[in-house]
């Protein structure tokens, strides 16, 4: 296993850890953090592949992933603040009646 394979495997491991956190944690804030871990794992695989093939588009894509992540967090946090102020709870179980 060379270093690029190792890093892609590491990205898979980190993605799995993030997914595990999304499934098992009950706190809404920590679930968001685990989503960010998953996104970081995707960026790691992008960067590893881009460096391996010396391709600019791979690194450019990471820039756009960062932009999308920033928008996602800004909007998600706004929605989260509204939801939590209405239900007075961060437990994801209290939002089971959400639709859509």
């Amino acid at each position: 296993m060379d270093r690029y394979q190792f890093l892609v495997a590491l990205a898979g491991l980190i993605f799995t850890l993030g997914l595990l956190g999304v499934v098992i944690r009950r706190n809404l804030l920590v679930v968001m953090m685990c989503l960010e871990i998953m996104l970081n794992a995707v960026v790691l695989s992008f960067v590893t592949t881009a460096v391996r093939t010396q391709s600019i588009p791979g690194v450019a894509m990471t820039f756009f992933i960062y932009v999308a992540a920033s928008c996602e967090v800004a909007l998600a946090m706004a929605i989260m603040v509204i939801l939590v102020r209405r239900r007075h709870s961060l437990d994801v179980g209290t939002f089971q009646d959400l639709k859509g």
Binding site: V23, I24, R25, R26, N27, L28, L29, M80, V81, V84, R85, H88, S89, L90, D91, V92, G93, T94
Partner: peptide
């Protein structure tokens, strides 16, 4: 938002 609610007592599902 850091409330001490159910998700604080029972961390995992």
């Amino acid at each position: 938002l850091d409330d001490r609610d159910m998700s604080y007592q029972w961390v995992f599902s």
